[in-house]
Each structure stands twice: as structure tokens, then as C-alpha cells.
Amino acid sequence: MWRNRKRDLMIICGVALIGALLPLGVADFFRYLVVLVSIYGIAALGLNIFMGYCGQINMGSAGFFCIGAYVPTMLQVKYELHYLIGFPLAILFSLLVAWLLSYPLLRLKGHAMAIGTLSFGMAVYLIAERFPELTGGADGITVPAMTIPGVEVGDKFYYYLILACFLFSYLGCYFLMDSRIGRALKAIRDDEDAALALGINIDQYKRFAWLVNSALMSVAGSLFAQQAGFLSPSTFALWTSISVLVMICVGGLGTNLGSVLGAAIMTLLPYILVSIQEYIMLTQGIILFCVLRFMPDGIVGTLPKLIRRNGRSKQAVAGSGEVAL
């Protein structure tokens, strides 16, 4: 019932249309939330390919987020390079870093990969914080507003730019995971030895997933820098890596829809829980705990099961555990 490409694409187009028309009628703050969710959605989609589909661990994704944010900003501040040129350069730089790192890091397994990626993320954060001549230091730096032939573009331009990037990322991930590559990644996740026996080049596919992860993180970072208008290293500390990780777990590991839903929920949560700010850390811990303990398949994995259990005959349940969207 879920594997229906035509219907999925129609839903995606519908969301795109709503998104495109939205700025006409709603407040700036609402638009801002949509933008924020889209940015973290892109980041979550990237991490999901590496963790959810390929079954690896990345605790340093904020490192690429940071590179994506700082490279175009500093190029613009120091060399007056236009943001739209810096943006692809940041992706290329992230890919280069990721490619170099892939040789030591992707050989590792489990915990070692966790701490290896974590130390990459921490190293990037510390470099951003401790080398003010490179990044403006811990005080942060103002991101110059983007101009298109001389005219400063407004919030609406960013909105459409970010929404377009999000939709492209989503569609990209959607088709990618339905393709041969996606199936190979899932095979690696499910059983590495079996995948090897099937003739899948594990190293290459892992590297591919890692590069896609870094590229999407970098895209999210670049967009983030523009919409925030201000960058400071503390945005890219360890907690950011972890929160993106929590997003994909909450939504449902290994589903694109889950990643985006998780990003939406975790991003909006602080704005919904206005009255209990002193307890924010405790709340985040409890949410993570409850998701892991009581619905380890995340929202996307758990809700359909509940709906089916209540509404349909048991026959329909069998064999349709997978969510494609």
C-alpha cells in the first residue's frame, strides 16, 4: 500500500505547491519555521543515507555542516566572492574532505567509527572556535546578505531557494533509494558478508553514502548560514551532530519521510514547549529515551503498524513493512 510511486510523487508535488504558495499568506515567523525544518530536513536526509540505509555511524556530521556554513561566508567576507559561487565550492570542499577522511574512517566499525567521526566533528568545531583569523572566532561573524546584480534579495528569495534545495534533495534521495544503489546500500546494512557474496563492492558503496552525507550536510550548512545571517562556532558543537542523529531516530531510521518528520518535530519542539524552558535538557533526554525504548522504528515505522492493527485485517499487514516515501 505504501510502495506507490505515482501517489508518492503526487504527494511530493502537492507539498511543493503548498510550500510555494505559503509565503503569500502567512507570517514571517511561520515561514522561518518552514525554512528551518527544510534545512534540518536536508541534513537529516543526508545522515539517513549513511546511517539509516547504509547502516554506518556518523557522530560528526556537524563538521560538514560547519564547513558548508563557513566556506561560502568566509569567501564572501574575505574575497568578496558571490555566495552562489561559494555555495558549490563549499560542497566540493566538503566532498574533498569527506573523500580524504573516507580512507581512515570507513575501515572502522561500530564504536570506532562513532568516535572517529565524532573527533572529526569536534576538530572542525575547535578549529572554527580557536582560529579567529580563519572564521571570526567564538564571537561569531555576520553573514553578508546575498545580492543579485546589486540588489539585496529578501527573505522570500531565501525561502524559495531553500525550499527548492529541499525538494531536490528529497526527490534525489527518493529516487536514489529506489534504485540499484539504494538496494545495494540496504544489502550492506542488513548483512555485510552476504552483500559481499552478492558481488557488491562494499567499500565503494559505503564511500558513496558517506560522500552523499557530507554533500547534503554541506548544502544544509550553506543554506543555514544565509538564513541565520550570523554564524558562531557554538552552533556546530557536538550537540548539533547528536540532534541530527536524534531526528532520524525519532522519525524512523532508514526512511526519507521519517528523516524529514523527525527534523520537523525536533526543530519545532523548543518553539512548542515555551513554558518549560528550564527543563529543556531533561525533556530532550526523555523524548529520545521513549522513542528508542517504545518505538524503535520511529514514527514512520510505528504509526502505520498501529493504524493497520486497528483498522485492517491481519492479512494486509503481512509483508508490507516497508515505507518507500
Partner: peptide, 9 residues
Amino acid sequence: MSVGTIAAG
């Protein structure tokens, strides 16, 4: 980690 975060909170 979630238990640790709860404890810290």
C-alpha cells in the same frame, strides 16, 4: 546516551 542526558537534565 539518553539515560545520561536525563540524569544531567
